[in-house]
């Protein structure tokens, strides 16, 4: 087996592999930066909760028209937004903090979603919805992912400064602008559409992995926000490629393979990153004179 067979042939010979790679790579372009902001806003677990929250919507779409893309995507988007807004409202008008109300809503959503799928579908369908079918991405799905990523990148570019201000110095932002709350909601909507984009390929439960793991790994290497976003995208792309390759050669499930590669990069970054465990503990005890 030569290098071509090992690294390129799967993607050249099989259309489903090419589309899988294209889908995951395109998705990486926006999932990376969105994940970085989620992490910096200390909302990693919120992302996880939102990933569960889109399930009942996707399941409702599945009930109506089977494993078709558009109904499931729209359903997931609607359900995600409803949960995001509801948990925000609950934390605002009751004593419950937002993380608690998110946890409550996502548990309800997960149970509801699984029950809805099981009403009509088999366990295989359930596995598809929960863990995705990256190898079954068709052209419609790719167009959908492309549209989602385009919208996300434009929105991120426009919201960049308010988002940075809202993370860095929220009280100051309130003194110069009323944008804080709308920006927060728009950002949650961005998280939801990226999760919905990812769930075709990776399933509702793993979609958040392509967001959080590369962002968390990037933080061990670079300091600036821009570099973090760029590196998160790169890690995401590499994970997609290597994950699909592993999945092809070892005949293992593709979604989990992608996320496991991202997980491996995270662990290596944590250990050996320039800001990771080893380098901060083994750094020679020299220091500059000033």
């Amino acid at each position: 087996m030569n290098l071509y067979d090992l690294f390129l042939a799967p993607f050249m010979q099989f259309g489903f592999m090419t589309r899988a790679l294209a889908g995951a790579v395109i998705l990486s372009l926006s999932a990376g930066p969105v994940g970085v902001f989620l992490m910096l806003r200390r909302m990693s677990l919120t992302g996880d909760a939102m990933a569960h929250a889109i399930l009942p919507g996707a399941a409702a779409g599945f009930l109506v028209s089977g494993l078709a893309i558009l109904p499931m995507t729209l359903g997931g988007f609607a359900a995600g937004l409803v949960v995001a807004v509801l948990s925000g409202l609950v934390s605002r008008f009751t004593i419950q903090r937002e993380d608690n109300s998110l946890a409550a809503f996502y548990l309800i959503s997960l149970a509801l979603g699984v029950m809805l799928v099981s009403l009509k579908g088999s366990n295989v369908d359930l596995m598809h919805v929960l863990f995705g079918t990256v190898l079954a991405l068709n052209n419609d799905a790719l167009i959908m992912i492309g549209a989602i990523v385009t919208v996300s990148l434009v929105a991120l570019a426009l919201l960049w400064r308010p988002l940075v201000a809202e993370c860095l110095d929220p009280t100051f932002l309130r003194s110069v602008s009323g944008a804080g709350q709308p920006v927060h909601l728009l950002f949650l909507a961005l998280v939801v559409i990226n999760l919905v984009g990812g769930f075709q390929a990776l399933g509702t439960l793993l979609a958040v992995g392509l967001m959080m793991l590369p962002a968390a790994a990037a933080r061990f290497w670079v300091r600036s926000l821009e570099a973090m976003c760029a590196l998160a995208i790169a890690i995401s792309v590499v994970s997609s490629y290597l994950g699909l390759l592993v999945s092809y050669h070892l005949s293992v499930a593709s979604g989990p393979a992608i996320i496991l590669v991202a997980g491996a990069i995270y662990v290596l970054s944590m250990l050996f990153g320039s800001r990771g465990l080893v380098s901060s503990n083994l750094r020679p005890r020299r220091h500059r004179v000033a």
Partner: peptide
């Protein structure tokens, strides 16, 4: 703002 309200870990 009070210094405590600024997220000093933010990569800015």
């Amino acid at each position: 703002p009070q210094i405590a309200e600024i997220d000093r870990s933010f990569p800015a």
